[in-house]
């Protein structure tokens, strides 16, 4: 009887590790799918950010602002007579 204990324990360990392996593989797939999903989201967010940056740059283009300020709003740089320098706030 005593001689059977060791092989029995080892067999059991093999079965347990086998099941654990299956479990681990399953977990890997779930986590990979999740990672992939997050990577896609990250990519889309980055791309969206890039797109918005470009949009901002287009709308905020200084030549465009300069042009519209001068033509549509009739703005101009005041000359020295019209300029009053205030002391800097402490």
């Amino acid at each position: 009887m005593k001689r059977l204990i060791l092989p029995a324990c080892l067999s059991l360990a093999i079965i347990v590790s086998g099941v654990a392996l299956v479990f681990a593989r399953h977990q890997t797939r779930i986590l990979f799918a999740e990672r992939q999903q997050l990577r896609t989201e990250q990519q889309q967010t980055t791309d969206e950010w890039g797109r918005l940056q470009l949009e901002l740059a287009t709308l905020g283009s200084l030549s465009e602002i300069n042009h519209r300020a001068r033509t549509e709003l009739q703005m101009q740089i005041p000359d020295q007579v019209a300029t009053l320098a205030l002391p800097a706030r402490p």
Binding site: D47, G50, R51, Q53, L54, A57
Partner: peptide
Amino acid sequence: TVLALSTPLV
């Protein structure tokens, strides 16, 4: 302010 930016063509 962004001067050069890479964004992928999809």
